[in-house]
Nucleic acid binder design. Structure first.
Length: 164
DNA sequence: GCCAACGTTGGC
DNA sequence: GCCAACGTTGGC
């Protein structure tokens, strides 16, 4: 018999530039919970608003750095949050067109679940069988919030040396 | 620093 | 609504 806890989880990859937000920063936050804000792309917005759900699993991917790749895992603890940075005139992500009554931009809260002992480099992902069509492996894949298949997720965990 | 890929903008 | 120009992303 299906129970509530059997609700299917979805898998995602979130990009971050480690100079602006890394796992080092994350570890200093209470309960290792971070608000993933500042996403300003409509396709990613739609994903954050409509598809990312509490309990979903997220690969944390470093980009624009010496060795791009997946650095750890997180879990969604709160979904569909209007992005507060859009309402804040002092924020670099301020958007006067987004108002609380009708927000343009959305965020989620993520709890850090795992910091990989060693980052799984993008160069490894690109040559790993089964990841040929993974979005982050495609040239010019600029989306900062990407869907990941359960199989891709399983393979990445295996590469990271985590028992799945 | 280069440049391909892609999103956004704005003239028409 | 088309599409060229422009800006940004991000690997290399």
């Amino acid at each position: 018999m299906a129970r509530h806890s059997d609700t299917p989880r979805s898998f995602w990859l979130f990009k971050t530039e480690p100079t602006s937000f890394s796992i080092e920063h994350w570890l200093k936050l209470p309960s290792q919970v971070a608000l993933w804000d500042g996403v300003r792309n409509y396709q990613s917005r739609n994903t954050l608003r409509d598809l990312v759900k509490t309990g979903d699993h997220v690969l944390i991917h470093y980009s624009s750095c010496t060795i791009p790749g997946i650095a750890g895992l997180a879990t969604v603890v709160e979904a569909g949050i209007p992005d507060p940075s859009a309402f804040d005139p002092s924020s670099p992500y301020f958007d006067p067109k987004s108002i609380p009554a009708s927000p343009t931009w959305f965020s989620v809260r993520l709890k850090l679940a795992r910091c990989f002992a060693r980052l799984v480099p993008l160069s490894t992902l690109k040559v790993t069988p089964g990841l040929e069509t993974m979005m982050v492996c495609r040239r010019g894949a600029r989306l900062s919030i990407q869907p990941v298949t359960p199989e891709e997720y399983r393979i990445v965990l295996k590469l990271a040396g985590i028992k799945g």
